[in-house]
């Protein structure tokens, strides 16, 4: 069949060029990436949205944006080396080119349901990656929100992310930052145990608090149960769910959660909307 090229019509699958400004290993499995669109434009995302990153010849994969739109000039990703694309990105260096589509999906409701409220952030492992975007956004509009509590859990002390930045979070006004590891090493003096072991240690006003949750699939069930015990209404809990959002535009079918598309209806969902959705937490 004759293939002709056209740049006349907008192609939802065509990435725009971007350049890696910085690539920095963070843990054994994870690296930090700073990117700039070659157009010079801002990404234009909101906290919780994701982008599709292309490495030509390898493929394309969805990743949550880790920086806040309030920090302009570039945007951040933090990737675990587990898939074809994330592994290929780990082989790249500053100055290398990638393709970007997006931003896609529903963000956390930073400008509506969260405004004026106390915010409780709960993240496990690389679940902190998209949540960091929200945390930065909240700190950059500090007077728009009440008390901030951040809980972060990882498998081991070496798996902790954004260590310098989390030290700064501890020093923010009206902010509590607690972390836990599943398995301690000789240097660790903090809490040991899954993230829910941190929850009895905090004091929150459950009806003034909005919870922002992101972590591995297994984490949600236990965290949501604990929040329920603490009296946080399901209407005030927001989760970001992982799925293979292959196309990002509601076509390919891979990210469907029952009738919902993670790429369009999510990846951020209000927990109360997911209670009747049986494929949501598994």
């Amino acid at each position: 069949m004759a293939q002709t090229r056209s740049s006349q019509e907008k192609d939802i699958y065509r990435p725009e060029p971007a350049t890696l400004a910085k690539v920095q290993p963070v843990t054994e499995m994870e690296s930090f990436f700073e990117l700039r669109l070659d157009s010079g434009k801002e990404l234009g995302h909101m906290p919780g949205q994701f982008v599709e990153v292309s490495v030509a010849g390898i493929g394309e994969a969805p990743f949550g944006v880790s920086s806040s739109p309030t920090r302009q000039g570039s945007f951040h990703l933090l990737l675990r080396r587990v898939g074809n694309v994330s592994s290929a990105l780990h082989r790249l260096k500053a100055g290398d080119k990638v393709g970007i589509r997006g931003p896609f999906g529903k963000p956390f409701p930073v400008d509506d349901a969260m405004k004026g409220q106390d915010i409780l952030f709960i993240s496990g492992g690389i679940g902190l990656v998209p949540v960091r975007s929200v945390i930065q956004y909240v700190f950059d509009h500090r007077r728009d929100y009440g008390a901030v509590t951040i809980l972060f859990g990882t498998k081991s002390p070496a798996d902790r992310l954004f260590v310098d930045e989390t030290d700064e979070w501890k020093r923010q006004p009206d902010t509590v930052y607690l972390e836990s590891v599943d398995r301690a090493d000789a240097s660790w003096k903090g809490n040991v145990g899954v993230i829910t072991t941190l929850m009895p240690k905090i004091t929150i006003d459950p009806v003034r608090t909005v919870a922002v949750i992101c972590g591995p699939p297994i984490m949600y069930k236990f965290v949501l149960m604990e929040l329920n015990k603490m009296g946080v209404p399901s209407e005030r809990s927001y989760v970001s769910l992982e799925r293979h959002m292959k196309c990002g535009v509601g076509k390919c079918g891979h990210c469907q959660i029952n009738g919902l598309y993670a790429c369009q209806d999510g990846p951020v969902f209000r927990y109360s909307d997911l209670i009747p959705v049986r494929e949501a937490f598994r």
Binding site: A2, Q3, T4, S6, D11, Y13, A56, G57, D96
Partner: peptide, 19 residues
């Protein structure tokens, strides 16, 4: 079907079948 072609690291071009 081919959605795009690429040369080098970036430079994705749209393929359309217009016959």
């Amino acid at each position: 079907e081919d959605l795009l072609t690429f040369e080098g690291a970036a430079g994705f071009e749209t393929c359309l079948d217009q016959e």
